[in-house]
Amino acid sequence: MTLISSSIGRKVAMALSGIFLVVFLTQHFSINLLSIFSKSLFNQVSHFMGNNPIVQFILQPILILGVLFHFTMGFILELQNSKSRSSKYSSYKGRANATWMSRNMILSGIVILSFLALHFYDFWVPEMNYKYVEVLPLDANRYYEELVHKFENPIRVGIYVLSFIFLSLHLLHGFASSFQSVGVNNKYSKTIKKIATGFSIIVPIGFVFIALFHHLK
């Protein structure tokens, strides 16, 4: 109990849930990327992910718990941190010693959370409705068309692009920072930072590219 109730315990938990979400993001990106190259392969993989019982009933609940934990803990930490300095500075030069990304994780996090709400409304809710409420017949070829249909609306694509800019900003601090939180700060840290920075830029750009590709096609 000491571990989870302490400031370091919460920090480590935040980092581990963040790394878990980065792993999920990589998997999500890989599947989305397939839609650029092969309609049938994208449909096949999506069908597997949507109907495999291990993915559906074990991995999916773990993922939802991971997301819930990460943002709930983020809000709790933000609240605690704001209480630790009740009297604010009249002059505070935050940019002199820390990056914008590191100082505004709660802001980028809220944008990503808002996007997740839209994303769930767009894809997850209809999917759950299709499979478990209306119990419609299995159709292994519907996923690609559903994806393309969603990206027809320019407003949705615009929100998508904006959200992924904030995801990139969130990752630019959060990814490398999570290694520091779990105690990794050694000769490999510069390499980890470079890889994390590359990931934080390339993956969101990739998501944006996929959205624009289907919108403009």
């Binding site: 400031s7 209480k83 630790s84 002199a96 010693n97 820390a98 601090h173 520091q180 939180s181 700060n185």
Partner: peptide
């Protein structure tokens, strides 16, 4: 009642003795 560390690194920059974040890890 100190706050939680979010690894901004501001402390390391402003520390008059250059104490490294490596210590926090």
């Amino acid at each position: 009642g100190f706050g939680n560390c979010t690894n901004t690194g501001a402390c390391e920059v402003e520390c008059p003795k250059g104490i490294s974040l490596e210590n926090i890890a």
